[in-house]
Write a protein that binds this DNA or RNA. Structure first.
Length: 388
DNA sequence: TCTGGGGTCCTAGGACCC
DNA sequence: TCTGGGGTCCTAGGACCC
């Protein structure tokens, strides 16, 4: 049976949700994230804002310079998650298997569904109508014989696109997209490729395996070989190889005061432990991340014999990591804490989860108490209170 | 330009064991 | 008195994506 995959990708998702919730924003340059006076980047922006050269991941200051009359609004992740859940539910009405790839994107395995659902382009059109009617938003859908082609196809006619990569035209399709735009080829890989004089997929197809491996290493060579031929390099495994839970915060001003870092770690310890327990996972590995005032970033982690069970335990471990990693010669721009290699089977100790709501209350109280305390400290307040 | 926050996957090297 | 090979676990860093 021939495989058929859809990739459904929402158009300017965060910005579109904001425009839908607030009709005043419709037709105007809207920028989500990148609030003036705060460190940050643009999370998303409307197509009207893109005309000014604004794009996601751009520093806030640059966005303000390019688009001084733009409407800047904060990120409302909870709301986007709500809409996302609704959209995923719509997808599941049409596809036996929906793999969510990010908050605004999913792969639908439509293999063998044509008898029941109809031909792919018609089903895709129906999904688009459904999403529009129920959420007011537009989605672009790409169709291909594998997930990778579907993913590229979803981008091909954005916004409000619908494109199918025809059978037998896979190579032609790949060659119609600039190599540097292919999914998985980022800044670093592109710079390597360019330096080697490789700027098209057809050049990659003509290179020998040994040459490619010598230049990029085995993993990257395999990836490039596959995508240059329109094959799936293995994006989006249905079962991730490892799981992690982390929170981090960038201070409005770099911090040199140990007690501020300590208080932030206490807060982060509660956040990550609660989120871990909420998912029903467990973890023995704790990682601390620091970004210094010179933007250099480093991490340090430790693995203990047993899974972490209390925020206090996490907090104490995080202090050990901080003391090992921070030599106080630079102020701290960002501090983060996370669990690595989390085990989805959990701890096997149900007592941990029985009182999870009670735990949540305690955490909330603790955080509230912390926040009240932090109100005295102007430096840290913004960083702590911006989180729900 | 002055660079968020949350993730996954890969790699290279070291420790340790048989 | 100059030495193996393989497997597994762990760490730190880096690439990439949304």
């Amino acid at each position: 049976m021939e495989s058929v995959f859809f990739c459904a990708d929402m158009d300017a998702f965060f910005a579109s949700v904001e425009q839908h919730d607030n009709p005043d924003y419709v037709g105007k340059p809207l920028i989500v994230g990148g609030i003036e006076g705060h460190r940050g980047v643009v999370s998303a922006c409307s197509y009207e804002a893109r005309k000014y050269g604004v794009h996601s991941a751009m520093p806030a200051s640059a966005a303000h310079r390019l688009c001084p009359n733009g409407i800047f609004v904060p990120v409302r992740m909870k709301r986007y998650k709500e809409v996302s859940d609704h959209i995923m539910e719509i997808f599941s009405r049409f596809a036996p298997e929906v793999i969510q790839n990010s908050i605004d994107e999913a792969f639908l395995d439509m293999t063998g569904t044509d008898r029941l659902m109809g031909i792919p382009t018609e089903v895709a059109a129906k999904i688009k109508v459904c999403v529009k009617e129920e959420t007011g938003l537009t989605v672009s859908i790409g169709i291909g014989e594998n997930r990778y082609l579907a993913k590229l196809a979803s981008d091909y006619r954005k916004p409000d696109g619908l494109y199918q990569v025809e059978k037998g035209k896979e190579i032609e399709f790949i060659d119609s997209i600039p190599l540097k735009k292919l999914w998985g080829i980022g800044k670093s890989t592109w710079s390597h490729l360019e330096k080697a004089g490789i700027t098209t997929a057809s050049q990659i197809r003509n290179l020998s395996d040994t040459l490619l491996e010598g230049m990029f290493g085995k993993g990257a060579a395999e990836f490039l070989k596959a995508v240059a031929r329109g094959q799936d390099p293995g994006i989006c495994a249905s079962e991730p190889k490892s799981r992690s839970v982390s929170n981090e915060t960038t201070f409005d001003q770099d911090v040199g005061d140990y007690s501020v870092l300590k208080d932030t770690l206490l807060w982060l310890s509660h956040q990550i432990l609660f989120r871990l327990l909420e998912k029903g996972w467990s973890s023995k590995t704790l990682a601390l991340k620091l970004r210094l005032d010179n933007f250099s970033t480093s991490t340090i982690q430790m693995t203990q014999e047993n899974a972490f069970t209390s925020a206090e335990e996490v907090f104490q471990a995080s202090l050990i990591l901080l003391n090992k990693k921070w030599d106080r010669r630079h102020n701290v721009r960002l501090i983060g804490l996370g669990f690595q290699n989390a085990d989805p089977a959990g701890t096997g100790q149900p007592s941990l989860f029985e009182d999870i709501h009670e735990k949540q209350n305690k955490v909330e109280k603790a955080v509230l108490k912390l926040n009240n305390r932090f109100k005295k400290s102007q430096v840290i307040k913004a960083a702590l209170l911006k989180k729900p």
